[in-house]
Amino acid sequence: MWYSYQVGKAPGYLRDENGDIQYESYVGADGEVYFYTDDEGKKIPKESGEMEVLYSNPVKFWGTITSQLKNAVMRAWGSDSTNNYATLILAKHAKDSDGNELSLPFGARIWLHSEIKMKPNGSPDENSADYQVSGIMNEALNETSYYLQVLQQSEEKT
């Protein structure tokens, strides 16, 4: 599995039907399109007026995800539906593939089966993730449980 968490925000840009960024421009008297540039000669993108969430580079980790939640477990999370939720179980002080202690924050994205897609700005596309951390239960002695919201249904790969 892979995880990524929010690291900041950046201005969002208007995009065309292919997903390419649109740039500030004008049509000259000769009918040609000219682009506005900054001091370094780079084209200036058209901002959408919205901020885009940036995510960290995905890091590999190991844990157990189950979508077979029992009613008692669901009640502990305050939910009465098992359709769109799963549980991730990690050992206390578990480490990721970089050797860092694993502590997933609220909103972290997890890829189990889906391909990690990247945005044009180099940030992982959070919409390509399989799960989002929606709750954390760390009272147990030897493990931490994470309540995961299913973002997309994917077929299990073998």
Rank of each mutant, 00 (worst) to 15 (best):
A72C: 01
P124N: 07
S4G: 08
P45T: 13
W62S: 14
D130M: 07
L69I: 15
G49V: 01
E52V: 14
T87F: 07
Q68I: 03
T144F: 09
S97P: 06
A76T: 14
G78L: 11
S145E: 13
S134Q: 08
Q22R: 05
G28T: 10
L141Y: 05
V53E: 09
E24W: 00
F61Y: 07
D96G: 11
D20V: 01
Y23D: 09
I110Y: 06
A91C: 07
P105D: 05
N100E: 12
S97Y: 04
A72R: 03
Y131K: 04
W111F: 01
Q132C: 08
T87V: 15
T87Q: 15
Y147R: 07
G31M: 02
L14T: 08
W62C: 00
A72H: 10
D30Q: 01
I21W: 07
L104H: 03
E115N: 12
G107V: 07
T87K: 10
K95I: 15
R15E: 13
S81H: 06
Q153M: 07
K92W: 02
N18S: 05
T66R: 02
Y3Q: 10
S128T: 15
Q22W: 00
Q132I: 13
N71K: 14
A10L: 03
S4D: 08
R15M: 15
E156V: 15
W62P: 00
Q132N: 09
L141A: 12
G31A: 10
S154A: 15
D20H: 01
L88A: 01
Q132M: 14
S114I: 10
M137E: 15
G122S: 06
L14C: 10
W111E: 13
S103E: 09
S79V: 06
V133M: 02
N71L: 12
G135M: 06
L14A: 06
V133H: 05
S67Y: 12
Y146A: 05
M137Y: 14
A91K: 15
W111C: 04
E156K: 09
I65W: 04
Y23E: 11
Y55W: 15
P11C: 04
V133G: 04
Q22H: 00
A72K: 04
E126N: 03
K119C: 08
S123G: 06
L54G: 03
M51T: 13
G107T: 05
T144V: 15
D96N: 13
E155C: 03
Y131L: 02
L141I: 11
T158H: 10
V73S: 12
V53Q: 08
I21Q: 08
E40W: 04
M118I: 11
G49F: 00
L112D: 14
N142V: 07
Q68M: 10
W62V: 12
F61H: 01
S134G: 11
N83A: 06
N18W: 02
S154T: 11
G122L: 00
G12E: 07
H93F: 07
P58D: 01
Q6T: 09
S79N: 04
F106P: 08
R15L: 13
E143N: 15
E115T: 09
K46D: 09
W62D: 13
Y85R: 13
